[in-house]
Simulated assay, not measured.
Amino acid sequence: MITVHRLGLEPKPFLLNCDLIVMVESTPDTIVTLTTGDRIGVVETPAEVRAEVARWRAGVQRLATRGGLDPTHVGPAEVRALTADHHRR
Rank of each mutant, 00 (worst) to 15 (best):
R39V: 03
T65D: 11
H5L: 04
H86G: 14
P76C: 07
H73I: 14
G8I: 00
D19C: 13
T35R: 12
T3R: 08
P28L: 08
H5A: 03
R6N: 02
G67E: 05
E52I: 03
M23K: 15
T33I: 08
G68H: 11
E10F: 13
L15D: 12
T30S: 08
A81H: 10
E44Y: 02
R57A: 03
M23G: 13
I2F: 01
L34W: 02
S26P: 11
V79S: 08
R66L: 12
P11H: 07
V60I: 09
G67N: 05
W56V: 06
V32W: 02
R57N: 07
G8E: 05
A51Q: 05
T45A: 07
V74R: 03
E48M: 05
N17E: 07
E52C: 07
V74A: 14
A77G: 15
D19L: 13
V42E: 00
R50A: 12
D29Y: 10
I31N: 04
H87T: 14
R88S: 13
T72C: 09
D19V: 12
H87L: 12
T33R: 10
V22E: 12
V4A: 02
T35E: 11
M1S: 09
L16Q: 00
L63I: 05
L20Q: 13
I21K: 03
F14Y: 08
P11Y: 06
E44Q: 04
P28S: 09
R50S: 14
R50W: 13
T27W: 12
L16S: 00
C18W: 03
V4S: 00
H73P: 03
E10A: 11
R57Q: 08
V60G: 02
L16G: 02
A47F: 08
L9K: 12
E78T: 10
G68L: 15
R6E: 03
L82G: 09
I2S: 01
H73C: 10
R39H: 04
R39N: 04
T65F: 10
A84K: 14
V32R: 01
M23I: 15
A77R: 15
C18M: 08
E78W: 06
D19R: 10
P76L: 09
I2K: 00
G41R: 04
D19Q: 14
L7F: 09
A84P: 10
V49S: 04
